[in-house]
Design a protein around this nucleic acid. Structure first.
Lengths: 228, 228
DNA sequence: CGGTATCTTGATTGGTATCAACTTAAGTGG
DNA sequence: CCACTTAAGTTGATACCAATCAAGATACCG
């Protein structure tokens, strides 16, 4: 089994604030899971009792709205942590996590991390910084959802996806999302998302390469985000 | 000048995790400000460099959207802390804070708190819990903004305001908000909010008592939130 | 008391959801 | 490997919701 102290993924998250000794201890009690595309890491209402560290793959974090629609709140990839809230709260999860492609994740039980949270202020501060950043991003999303049109939100999401899941070789968003998932990401009906995508395609702003989307005109997308 | 170690406000926030000694030190370097209704505590883009503790009054936390509309993200009252993000981030504020009525706030410079963050894990954990809760609430707001109609959101906000700013004597929301502010809270145009308020009034769900709003039929509001 | 901000209502337009029909792609089992 | 079944994607028509523009009413303030 691979060891946390040698894991490159750690470079991208709060675990790089842990000492070598802490990493060795955590490494000895972690469990590594392989999750197939489409499988659920955890459900809304499930007790997590630990933290997930994503080694490979991408998952969507979503929440059901009262009217039965699914809202995707975040996409997490290698290096991201998942379940920080369970560390400081005894509540069940308010979110659901589903793999968008094959994943490898490490799970570290809550008890193992809690002692570090109390003894290693650097680690706690790092988690705190992460949460503060998430909070800032959430504020921006709220404003977007409340004030921007679906078209603006779609353009914004496409640009964001292009930044995060950009393929080095081709100019393509390297993540397969169904139309429904795109709609759930921007908070609209599937048909609306489809219509706008085909409008963008007609205007040569994007292109469909198999199941993937290529961004042809980033400047135009940025204009659309601004409201033109 | 009043002392932090004797301040009741502290019972409601993370400061109750500080030791008596820490409170005495913080008390000696805090500054107390009186802020008149309508005055700004800080602007978007301003550097805060400290944390505000609200002793009296209510303020709105808002953010300007790119299309020039103002979105109110939160209402803070006595006992609430403000500026936690500045503690762990060197960035300027992404939010604006304006007093909704006359306020008394204590300001504690960042440097004074930082040492406690590193030495007192209880305090850090308490801040962490606060942020985790805020994050959960923010997730809910995102889903609401993305999926619910303006009418649902208005009903929800009225119920929330009634819970938080409920007057003991009368059944009235004890907080004066302009129609524009209500609209900015639910993320809609002022006229839309007005129209829905008058619709609610016509149906005897709410009533206008001077500048305040009284909730007459809570059950009906809850139904509207659910989508009926 | 006049002037200004806030509030209110009406009319219109545009955006988005919804329903329905159809096409294309992806599995699945014989 | 093909025929069948089902899921995903697409397009059109319609209805509803909310933004915007316009005009007037009411409250507020110096």
């Amino acid at each position: 089994m691979s060891k946390c102290q040698h894991c490159i993924v750690r470079r991208f998250n709060s675990f790089n604030s842990l000492t070598k000794e802490e990493l060795i201890r955590i490494s000895s009690c972690k469990t590594t899971r392989k999750i197939k595309k489409g499988e659920t890491l955890f459900e809304e209402g499930e007790r997590i009792n630990g933290i997930y560290c994503i080694k490979e793959g991408v998952c969507k974090i979503s929440k059901m709205s009262e009217n039965g629609r699914n809202q995707i709140l975040n996409l997490l990839k290698h290096g991201d942590l998942l379940g920080q809230r369970s560390l400081v709260s005894d509540e069940v999860s308010n979110l659901k996590a589903v793999a968008l492609n094959d994943m490898k994740v490490c799970f570290i039980p809550k008890e193992e991390i809690l002692s570090d949270l109390e003894k290693n202020p650097d680690f706690t501060l790092s988690i705190l910084k992460d949460m503060a950043t998430s909070l800032k991003i959430a504020d921006n999303v709220i404003v977007d959802m409340a004030q921007k049109t679906v078209k603006q939100r779609l353009a914004e999401v496409l640009l964001k996806l292009n930044t995060i899941f950009h393929n080095k070789n081709e100019d393509v968003i390297n993540l397969k999302l169904s139309r429904e998932e795109i709609a759930n990401l921007i908070g609209t009906a599937t048909e609306s998302a489809i219509r706008l995508l085909s409008e963008f395609k007609k205007k040569n702003i994007i292109e469909f390469k198999g199941k993937n989307i290529a961004i042809l005109n980033k400047v135009e997308l940025e204009k659309i985000v601004q409201g033109f």
